[in-house]
Design a protein around this nucleic acid. Structure first.
Lengths: 200, 200
DNA sequence: ACCTGAACACCGTTCAAGT
DNA sequence: ACCTGAACACCGTTCAAGT
């Protein structure tokens, strides 16, 4: 049964390996919070008390580490999308989700780096669980709003995520100060709405 | 007369120094075009046939090099703003300028890094000529549009520049493909317009 | 006045050698 | 199966020593 399962047999890790992976993840979470998604990997390994080789063994890529660190946040965003899809009107649902998404990436700085990897790493992203969680979540809300006619239909999910993430990224490196991101998010959501007249 | 001028005496450089600075700038322009604003400085020096120390002597900071490389583009944007201020209605003037700004930063990849430095480097930016060119240009158009009531008044010039630049940045690292930036810019400009009703 | 090149302090990534 | 630590190939930045 185990060997015939669809998933390629998770294959329980050895105790020490599991411990190292966990420790790396928690150290990484702090490091990302402090230095952003570009935090030094070598420093993370050092602070976790393991060699750099061990970090690479567990997390072959930076995106893999980021995804592991922010697993629960990503899943929460996935669930939120499902809830909003059932409980709110198309436009408010999308708006609320985008605001939540923005809050998450602002609170968890590293998350922005992962979202940005959607474009950088498309090859790997396509086969990763976090991509399979986040993209359909956003897509379901966006496309519904577009079908209903309340949101312009010339934008894709990729573009919207990119846009909101870009705002968060720009804000991050601007020296986070206060939550000045509100007005810009309102601007974006307003811009998303289907427009009748357009100034040229 | 020369020594009593307001500017701190440009003080003609020695011929070799001037030649090195020019060569560095042209090499840098290529490097930035190829690798973006993060292009390796050491590589630029190498390709220009000078030592890294020489690069630092002429351009003590990355932003200084970027500003030197994109001098004409920055001035062109300044002039364009003045023209549009006189020749076009508030909203179209702002929209056109933002589109031009976006085109410039897309064509000259490194320009995005300079604009981003407005936030990173505020200290130095405040005293730099490019800042004194770009910011007033954008501000004059934005504030006029706000006074006229056609653009929402809860955004600052900083925010708008940041936003447009962020879109360009995100688009750059997404693998430039085609000019997919059009729809997003339209979205932003649309969002900038003063809104009567707002969906929450 | 200007330039060179070494020096310092950092990276990411891989891979033989160990347990 | 997992880990270590050295090795390789890169950075940015500074500064004595030269011309």
């Amino acid at each position: 049964m185990t060997s015939r399962a669809g998933n390629p047999a998770p294959r329980a890790k050895r105790a020490d390996a599991r411990h190292n992976a966990e420790r790396l993840a928690t150290v990484a979470r702090n490091a990302f919070a402090e230095h952003g998604a570009d935090a030094s990997l070598i420093d993370i390994a050092r602070r976790a008390g393991v060699s750099s080789g061990t970090l690479y063994r567990h997390f072959p890529t930076r995106a893999a580490l980021l995804a592991a660190v922010y697993r629960s946040e990503i899943e929460a965003l996935g669930n939120l999308a499902a809830e909003l899809h059932d409980s709110a009107e198309p436009l408010p649902a999308l708006a609320t989700w985008l605001r939540a998404f923005s809050e998450y990436t602002t609170t968890c700085r590293g998350l922005k780096g992962l979202v940005a990897a959607i474009d950088t790493d498309t090859q790997n992203a396509l086969t990763s669980w976090w991509y399979a969680t986040l993209l359909p979540a956003a897509t379901s809300l966006l496309e519904r709003a577009q079908r209903t006619g309340v949101v312009r239909d010339d934008v894709t999910t990729h573009q919207v995520l990119r846009l909101v993430n870009a705002v968060a990224l720009a804000h991050e490196q601007a020296g986070l100060d206060d939550d000045q991101t509100g007005p810009l998010l309102n601007l974006i959501i307003d811009g998303l709405r289907a427009h009748r007249d357009f100034a040229e």
